[in-house]
């Protein structure tokens, strides 16, 4: 039997710092697809088998198959009020789609995180 793991990750990020303007913006995102599973196995059997037994193992790959899709998006906007003071707002969205739940059940979930504050330098 063959086990195959596949993972594909795409990421992009950008930052804008307008000249002469008091604000800057950054954004970043990562999209990841992952999968791990094995194919239906051929079982190596001894000559003497037990009559009542069922040696069809074709379904067992489904019990432990894994398949996820993850998205992570973050952005930050900051604005300077003066040479030493600025404010910021950050947003982060973290999302996981569990397309093949295992023993932990469906672990699909997402979190939206917000941060905001002011900053001063001295």
């Amino acid at each position: 039997m063959d086990y195959e793991t596949k993972a594909t990750s795409l990421h992009a990020s950008g930052e804008i710092v307008p000249e002469g303007r008091p604000w800057r913006v950054s954004i970043a995102g990562t999209l990841t697809f992952t999968e791990g599973s094995f194919d239906a196995p051929d079982v190596e059997l001894p000559e003497e088998t037990v009559a009542i037994a069922d040696y069809d193992f074709s379904a067992i790959p489904e019990y432990s198959r894994l398949k996820y899709r993850q998205i992570e998006l973050t952005s930050r906007v900051s604005r300077s009020f003066s040479r030493d003071a600025s404010g910021y707002v950050e947003l982060g969205w973290y999302d996981l789609q569990d397309d093949s739940p295992w023993v932990y059940g469906d672990e699909t979930g997402s979190v939206l995180v917000t941060r905001a504050g002011v900053q001063t330098s001295f």
Partner: peptide, 28 residues
């Protein structure tokens, strides 16, 4: 000489579904 930065803000989160996997190492 002494220089530094102080940042004061707030943090909030909105949760949906199971978050232990997507944010395995964070308190949300």
């Amino acid at each position: 000489s002494l220089e530094g930065t102080v940042s004061v803000g707030g943090y909030g989160a909105s949760l949906d579904g199971v978050t232990g996997r997507v944010r395995e190492y964070d308190v949300d």
